[in-house]
Design a binder for these strands. Structure first.
Lengths: 349, 349
DNA sequence: ATGAAAGCGCTAACAT
DNA sequence: ATGTTAGCGCTTTCAT
């Protein structure tokens, strides 16, 4: 059998006794096709099992039926190799791929270097090769001015997940500020007054939003935040250092909110080393809710990041933008939820 | 800016002052191009930042530069939703995507239903739409006669991971038999004599190979296997039932090898319920080595499945097959390794 | 409401 | 060693 298409639009046209155009119109839900004709053509399509070639559609038309999802190369590969149980990629695929399939699109997953002087060349090459109808950006790419500029110049719709900045592209967030506030309020409600916060890398704007959420909750409750903020970069080691800083200060916190599961796990370790029992002596709230939080002892109370839902929403909006040219006016927010487990309790008396 | 390609082969040809064909030859490392000419054309390509359109290449030539990786829909989605920390998909992507990128290809990840009367329609549609140059099959698709037949008829190279059956397609295994033998021998060396085995779903042929490896090791050491085999289906619940069966028999095993991390975790739980301490009263060896095995108490000794390496090898062989038409004569084996942690010890005295 | 013609960007086959 | 021609399977544009 040859590598050529088995059944093409020509076969369908011949079978239905109509022109190629009419078949094309039926395929694309075009106007000016009588119901009877539509049915006849559809019958031929079904009978022959015809499926249009994505390459040919992209060649002739303006659409490629491809959505490109981009992640940071270095970080993603490091996560895969470390096998620490993060499932960011899986959740992106779950949300993005299934939504694409639902809408007749295909999701292509790619890695792009952020820390690289040839980001533009790299991305431009991918765009030239694939010509996707839309691009989903994740942090830290979402705020990378080079990438945003390039995509904008190419006039291709794109979503910026984890970005609120104005400008081109559709910004979406997982309500980091609100989630941090909820997490903090949860601890306040339990009676905590000295609540530490371990922030993530400043390269991600969501790190600042989470700090803001924590601050708001603390201030609304009349609590001080001074000396209760430490910075990490989402990694375990950075979390260990941050937790140690917080736990060795004069009036140490009775609870800590950390911006990633790895940093929270590190805080658990730091607490253990300091002879502190969680949650009896120290309460812990995590961010991400990746699989590992359920396997730690105690299981961690965590803010779930709705990655699948957010990516699915991004894909929807992108395809909408291709079809109608319209995009949301405001930042799109997909909120996470606080999942209570066993790492939080009232403070020691 | 329009959705048309910014820089096409025409621009390069014009810039270099040659015909389209010469540019095409340079792109494809074709013969009959003088080095000087090759350099001149390459200079134009670099200068203009030209990257060929994958769609146009697929339209005209016999290659699509696409490799399709297929997984079981039901199981994959269930794994994603359950968030139990399995990283099969990540490892496939890590091995497959990076190897594809290295060779100028692109990996497309798809889900296909096994338990479905229209597998063929579904897969045929994907093939018609994408026309991939090769397909990577994973269990249980690797032994699905409908899928194998379809791929063979379409004359498209494919790899069958986890399959040793003769016939079309390139079979690859992770040496399940050898790994099970090594795991068992490890326990025998520690002094165990009654070593139970919890097998996986019979739908996966690798389940039988693992049983065989365990049997071989036992018999080689002059040990009986009767009554020491239990069956699960890789899931936690099935592991719990299987472990309970093994642990409640007359002469209960002092060690168990289980065919998945979930089933081993379940065995740990079953042991705990039975008042048995691991590894003091019962040793446990797992299969898979997904991230969670390091987070259990004790951390599990496990056979690592080299998924990334196997998929990378499959991609290599597929692309080789496209280029040269050649394929390996024998089953390709990529061996895993036993990772020793804390769930194994000598048997109680 | 339907059809015919042109062309997308590339490679294959056939010149020269 | 290089160029020319035809055509892949569709959608677009322009007829009718």
């Amino acid at each position: 059998m040859s590598r050529r298409q088995a059944v093409t639009i020509k076969h369908v046209a011949a079978d239905a006794g109509v022109s190629l155009q009419t078949v094309s119109r039926v395929l694309n839900d075009g106007p000016n096709v009588r119901p009877a004709m539509r049915e006849r053509v559809q019958a031929s399509i079904d009978k022959l099992g015809y499926v249009p070639s994505i390459a040919a559609r992209r060649m002739s038309g303006k659409r490629s039926y491809l959505i490109l999802a981009i992640n940071d190369r270095e970080r993603t590969i490091a996560d895969w190799r470390s096998r620490e149980g993060g499932d960011w990629v899986d959740q992106m695929l779950l949300g993005g791929m299934l939504k694409c399939a639902e809408l007749g699109y295909r999701l292509i997953f790619e890695l792009v270097d952020t820390h690289n002087d040839h980001v533009e060349r790299e991305l431009a090459a991918t765009l030239a090769s694939l010509r996707p109808d839309g691009v989903v950006l994740t942090p830290p790419h979402s705020d990378n001015p080079l990438i945003v500029k390039l995509l904008n110049e190419h006039n291709i719709p794109f979503a910026r997940i984890g970005s609120k900045a104005p400008g081109a592209g559709i910004p979406l967030t997982m309500d980091d500020e609100g989630s941090a506030r909820v997490a903090t309020e949860h601890l306040i409600a339990l009676g905590h007054r000295a609540i530490g916060f371990i922030a993530g890398s400043a390269e991600y704007s969501l790190s600042e939003w989470r700090i803001a959420g924590w601050r708001e909750a603390m201030e609304a409750a009349g609590l001080v935040t001074e000396g209760l903020l430490a910075r990490g970069d989402f990694t375990y080691d950075s979390g260990l250092a941050a937790a140690n800083t917080l736990l060795t200060r004069g009036e140490r916190p009775t609870a800590i909110v950390a911006s990633s599961d790895q940093m929270t796990l590190a805080s658990l370790e730091a607490a253990s080393k300091a002879g502190l029992s969680v949650p009896r002596d120290l309460s812990l709230v995590s961010f991400d809710n990746t699989p590992i939080v359920r396997f730690s002892r105690p299981a961690l109370t965590a803010v779930d990041q709705p990655i699948a839902a957010t990516v699915a929403r991004a894909v929807e909006l992108l395809i909408e933008a291709v079809k109608t040219g319209e995009r949301p006016d405001d930042v799109v927010t997909v909120s996470g939820a606080l999942i209570e487990r066993s790492s939080t309790a009232p403070p020691p008396v």
